[in-house]
């Protein structure tokens, strides 16, 4: 995953703010959790991580307990949309002390880098994580130019 080190001396709020600043600076506004126009507030279901290589972009959705058959994944140019639902039945006879887990419909729209190829996408689901890989167009990859 993408651990970012933490220092125990800072307060949790300071730490969070600092992380946010780092993310914004590193990744630019399109992917920034606070700045992206389609971004969702922190803590939204499912959580998303995005990694990339020169060849492709890998998207990870943390969607435990979701039936992969109910997932609707679509891509239009560089906009990836993932919609689905997770229904958690409530036991009427039980007493609930905590109900923190998300229940209901969800939809996340993720802006990917401009050079992704929407025709070359694959997705899989394992242990509650949806992994979507999108290839990038050849032209966008860094090329070695040889000097003869």
């Amino acid at each position: 995953m993408f651990p970012i080190g933490s220092s125990a001396a800072d307060s949790p709020f300071e730490e969070l703010w600092r992380l946010q600043q780092q993310v914004d600076e590193l990744f630019g506004a399109w992917a920034s959790p606070s700045g992206g126009i389609r971004s969702l507030p922190q803590g939204s279901f499912p959580a998303v991580n995005i990694g990339h290589t020169p060849e492709r972009v890998e998207i990870y959705l943390f969607a435990p307990g979701v039936d992969p058959k109910t997932l609707d994944i679509s891509i239009q140019q560089n906009l990836l949309t993932v919609a689905g639902r997770r229904d958690i039945p409530t036991d009427e006879r039980a007493t609930y002390y905590r109900q923190e887990r998300f229940s209901g419909e969800f939809r996340r729209v993720i802006a990917l880098p401009e050079d992704v190829d929407p025709d070359r996408v694959h997705a899989r689901y394992q242990d509650g994580i949806v992994q979507i890989g999108v290839e990038r167009r050849e032209a966008a990859r860094p090329r070695q130019i040889e000097v003869h």
Partner: peptide, 12 residues
Amino acid sequence: PENAEALYADVR
């Protein structure tokens, strides 16, 4: 992937 870099991470 081996040479992957993070672009965005809700989960850290």
